[in-house]
Nucleic acid binder design. Sequence first.
DNA 1: GTGTCACGTTTTGTATACAATTTTAAAAAA
DNA 2: TTTTTTAAAATTGTATACAAAACGTGACAC
Lengths: 222, 222
Amino acid sequence: MAAKRSEELLKELEHDILTGTLTPGMKLDEKSLTERFNVSRTPVREALHKLASIGLIDILPRRGATVRKVGLKELIEMFEVMAELEGLCGLLATQRMTNDEVQNLRHRHEDTYILVENGQYDTYYDANVLFHECIYKGSHNNFLAEQTMNLRNRVAPYRRIQLRTPRRLETSFAEHEKILHAIEARDAEQTSELLKSHVTVQQGSFNNFISTLPMDLLRDGS
Amino acid sequence: MAAKRSEELLKELEHDILTGTLTPGMKLDEKSLTERFNVSRTPVREALHKLASIGLIDILPRRGATVRKVGLKELIEMFEVMAELEGLCGLLATQRMTNDEVQNLRHRHEDTYILVENGQYDTYYDANVLFHECIYKGSHNNFLAEQTMNLRNRVAPYRRIQLRTPRRLETSFAEHEKILHAIEARDAEQTSELLKSHVTVQQGSFNNFISTLPMDLLRDGS
DNA sequence: GTGTCACGTTTTGTATACAATTTTAAAAAA
DNA sequence: TTTTTTAAAATTGTATACAAAACGTGACAC
């Protein structure tokens, strides 16, 4: 897109936020970043502004940038939208995926079984992302796929928390199996419903998710 | 958000694109903009980058910025997502709007009747936007409302074209009446369905919309 | 006449200098 | 001790200067 250097910064900072190296609330002052990346303030500012418009950081006039803290209300709102987009992806994917694509998805799914058995949380998390991205792309609606991934990234800092919930992996794997089954049966409506609930409530309830969130990651007054 | 000056530029340029003063494909070179707004290149570049991340313009490395030309395929994809978001807004709004909010919406709707009778296209267009924004906000999901408005803005340059389709105003007004009726009846499912179809196919068919699009607004190969 | 290469111009990407505002810190007064 | 004021320091917003890459023009060769 834009400059080469500023694009690198963007990717790196985005990665840091998504993986939790930079947690919500942290300050990002320009000077430190210029030193860290050995560039001038100009590309740093461009990267920051891009992050801001993606929604990953907040920039207040004359007060610098901070990793975005999302209020509880907004987080719930985001999941509400996320569920709908994910459901639409599933609906369209079920109608539009070729048999080859479905088969590919099944293989990808079955390959993750070993990770569940060994309890490899981090690796499973990445594989999980890929599984869902396969469905996004399966919708054959590129714009939708990108929007959904963007939103997924935006809530990622908060999802990673709930990684180590007991039996989380087994539950996720079982739900994936059901979703895959619905796709193979070409039951679009059921795929959509399964995905909508899979996104947020995963296993038990949304309450579990909320309860396990460290409060300091949320905006004050939540 | 960011700087005061660059924020003004952003708004003004966005307005120009949304109203059609700047049409898809036009080049936006930095020098002209610095002269037009009497500022240096720095705020100009910031505004351009923001527009790029909103999706209204394209920035190619070392090749400048152009008002975004959306391919036909992508345009269809965007409307597919738009319909879903609009439908979700309607679904939630029907469940969550207070009686006062519904009443307010009805008044707003009835006020537009005079515009239909007089064939005041431009004024009706604005009123139409407000009507829909009322529903967005009625979802009581601020994040969803913003996302929907953003997407609406992104396709706005292409919607404005079809303004003068014969009997477009009457049809739109009648559909609004039906939507409003479903909301008043608290029939969330019907509201959602009505809105989904209202967004795109308006009156006859999506084909009509596609057919009336000036081809030079679309990317090559569409 | 057409195609290609070279040079000059234009435009973008980056760095740095300057201006303005906010934060902080300390000092003075209550 | 606490609060308020004030000034210095640090940080952000803007402008300009410099570097590098792309575009256009023109000349030369075929």
